[in-house]
């Protein structure tokens, strides 16, 4: 209950700040993207229609009253309800974030576990150098290079978008899945890889720590095979910090997605948010800020739930 209240307060704070910021920004909304000046009469009409000349507190109160009832207003630049814009973009964002998280965890845990088991070996050192290097590459640059190589030069994967606009609807169910996967591969890899490098380093450390725990030493002293120790004891001990890490990774996924969605023309929230800021689309800016804050709150919740599930002490007491 307290958690829900805190979450609500956070959302309100983010929305309020976004509202204040975008209204304070210079530059008029409704400017045509081609640089033409808008007919002044039309501009005045639009300002009147969206009540932009009312005092800011009044505008804010109106927005809040409507928002509480689920009405986030009408997007200036997309010319449709903000709710519709978000509803169209959100599934794409969630899909990308989930896929990237999967890449992050699968690759990260596999590498980290292997490194922990072979700590000090040549392979460990090479992988350590590799994961550190990956984390040092700007994420959008990684994306640009992947597009150039895999899409533009080798034609293995599509350059961007979420589905094929011509054939997608005509494919069988399996074909549509494959189409989605092909479009998802590069953006998810770009977004997930940087996270995977961090996860690998983290898992390696956590497992090295676990290695020295008493029960692991005991198990080893009792002659339990090394492989079983790794899977049964060490990896399990590493779960708890990892679960926390998942919660922490989610804001990063959303932030990184802003750049990745632009590189891959991915129709998600990040791209909508960037466009909205550049177009001074007040209602849409606030809407996207709300969604990203909600995602962070949910990410924290998921992380805590995972931690509770992974922590034997909590599990027992629950």
């Amino acid at each position: 209950m307290r958690r829900a209240l805190r979450a609500a307060a956070l959302l309100l704070a983010v929305a309020t700040l976004a509202f204040a910021a975008i209204h304070a920004a210079p530059g008029a909304p409704f400017q045509p993207a081609d640089g033409r000046a808008l007919d002044p009469v039309a501009a005045a009409g639009l300002r009147a229609r969206f009540a932009l000349d009312a005092p800011l507190p009044v505008q804010y109160a109106r927005w809040l009253a409507a928002a509480v009832q689920g009405d986030l207003g009408e997007s200036f630049s997309r010319q449709r309800p903000v709710r519709d814009v978000l509803a169209a973009a959100l599934p794409h964002s969630l899909l990308l974030a989930a896929a990237a998280l999967l890449v992050d965890l699968l690759v990260g845990i596999a590498l980290g576990a292997w490194q922990a088991a072979h700590a000090g070996s040549r392979g460990d050192r090479v992988l350590s150098a590799f994961t550190m290097s990956v984390q040092a590459v700007p994420v959008f640059w990684l994306g640009l290079v992947l597009v150039l190589v895999f899409a533009q030069w080798w034609h293995w994967l599509p350059v961007g978008g979420a589905t094929d606009p011509v054939t997608h609807d005509l494919l069988t169910a399996a074909g549509r899945w494959l189409d989605r996967l092909r479009h998802l591969a590069l953006p998810a890899l770009t977004l997930g890889l940087a996270g995977a490098a961090g996860t690998a380093r983290f898992v390696r450390g956590a497992m090295r720590d676990a290695w020295h725990e008493d029960h692991v030493r005991t198990a080893r002293a009792m002659g339990v095979p090394e492989r079983t120790i790794l899977l049964r004891h060490v990896l399990r001990d590493a779960w708890l910090p990892l679960a926390t890490l998942v919660g922490l990774a989610i804001p990063g996924l959303i932030g990184g997605a802003v750049l990745v969605e632009t590189v891959f023309s991915w129709p998600g929230i990040g791209r909508v948010a960037t466009d909205a800021i550049l177009a001074r689309d007040h209602p849409l800016v606030v809407g996207t800020a709300l969604v990203s804050a909600a995602a962070v709150v949910l990410g924290g919740l998921v992380g805590d739930l995972l931690a509770a599930w992974a922590d034997p002490r909590v599990r027992r007491s629950a």
């Binding site: 899409a151 533009q152 599509p158 350059v159 590189v263 129709p267």
Partner: peptide
């Protein structure tokens, strides 16, 4: 028979779609 517009985030991305035969 059919016209399809594909929307890209920016001009370089749109160009890549054409270069890659998409």
């Amino acid at each position: 028979a059919r016209l399809v517009w594909r929307f890209a985030a920016d001009l370089p991305s749109a160009l890549q779609q054409v270069l890659a035969k998409e």
